[in-house]
Every structure is written in C-alpha cells, then in structure tokens.
Amino acid sequence: MDILHTCMNVSDADELADWYVDELDFERSWEFTSEDGETRNVYVADGQGVEIQLSDTDGEDEFEFGSGWDHLAVKVEDVDAAFDEIDHHGVVQEPSDQPAAGARTAFVEDPDGHVVELIEPL
C-alpha cells in the first residue's frame, strides 16, 4: 500500500501550486476541474511522486483547521538554509534540534496558513 496524495482545500490553487513549486521544489503533475466547473484541483508532486491535491472551490477562501489536521512534513537538505530562503507566510517554530526524533526541524505556513514542517535528518 502506498500513499498517493493528500488533499488540501485552498483559496487559489495556482497561487498555492506556485508556492510549493517555487519554495519546496515540488512539480506540477496534473489537474482537473469538477464536472460542475466549481472546483479546480491542481496536483503538485515531490521527487518520489507523492502528491498534494490543491482543491480550489469557487467562493471558498477561508477554512477552519480542525484538531485532526496538524502539518505537512517535507524533507530538506538544510533546515536553516531552507527556513531562510522560503518565502513563508508565518513562522510557527524557528529551526531547532529534536534529538528524540534524530532531526532538525522548523515549521512555517504556506500562503493559506497550512503548517509545513521542514525536516533535516541528523
């Protein structure tokens, strides 16, 4: 069994896709629009082919983040460099070592406020 994708509701699929491509080196993989024309889905993929589905429904641009969703984790070569280079939209946690996890991590927000964890294995 493999994880194929995670779907996130977003305010502007193109803006968010551009952010994941420009800031985290994902690639646009494909897209489709619902039959009623109201929801556009743009997919971005990491280097292993795991995708994020960015689902943009007309008129929906504010979302409540429930307690069931926490963050998306992305492996990076150098957390400090990535943290300094990424045009993030909020700092949740600055870079720090997590010895129990064997990693250095930082948490930032994407343009819609989804939390993205940057992980550098130690």
Rank of each mutant, 00 (worst) to 15 (best):
I52V: 09
D80Q: 06
R40Y: 04
K75S: 07
Q48K: 03
L118Y: 05
W19F: 15
D46M: 06
D12H: 07
G49M: 11
V42M: 09
V50Q: 07
G37E: 06
W30H: 14
G37P: 01
F63I: 03
T57Y: 00
H89C: 05
A103T: 09
E23T: 02
L24V: 08
Q48C: 08
A17Q: 07
F63M: 05
T39M: 01
I3Q: 01
H5P: 14
A82Y: 10
L72T: 13
E27H: 10
E94W: 01
A73M: 07
G102T: 07
V76T: 02
L24E: 13
Q53K: 14
L118E: 00
A82D: 11
D18Q: 12
E31A: 09
L122Q: 13
V76W: 08
L118A: 03
P111A: 14
G68Y: 06
D84P: 15
V108M: 13
D2G: 08
E23A: 08
E27D: 05
G59P: 01
Y43T: 03
E51T: 14
V42P: 02
G47C: 04
E85Q: 10
P111T: 15
E23M: 14
N9I: 00
S67Q: 06
T57Q: 04
Y43N: 01
E62L: 03
D58E: 12
S67T: 14
V108L: 07
V44T: 05
Y20S: 05
D25V: 09
I3R: 11
A45W: 15
E31R: 15
A13V: 02
D14R: 09
P121N: 10
F32Q: 11
T6R: 15
T33M: 07
V116Q: 10
D22V: 09
E27F: 07
D97P: 14
I3T: 03
D25N: 11
G47L: 01
I3F: 13
E64G: 13
T6H: 15
C7K: 13
V91K: 09
I3G: 05
D97G: 13
E64D: 10
M1K: 09
Q53A: 15
P95A: 12
A106P: 08
F107W: 03
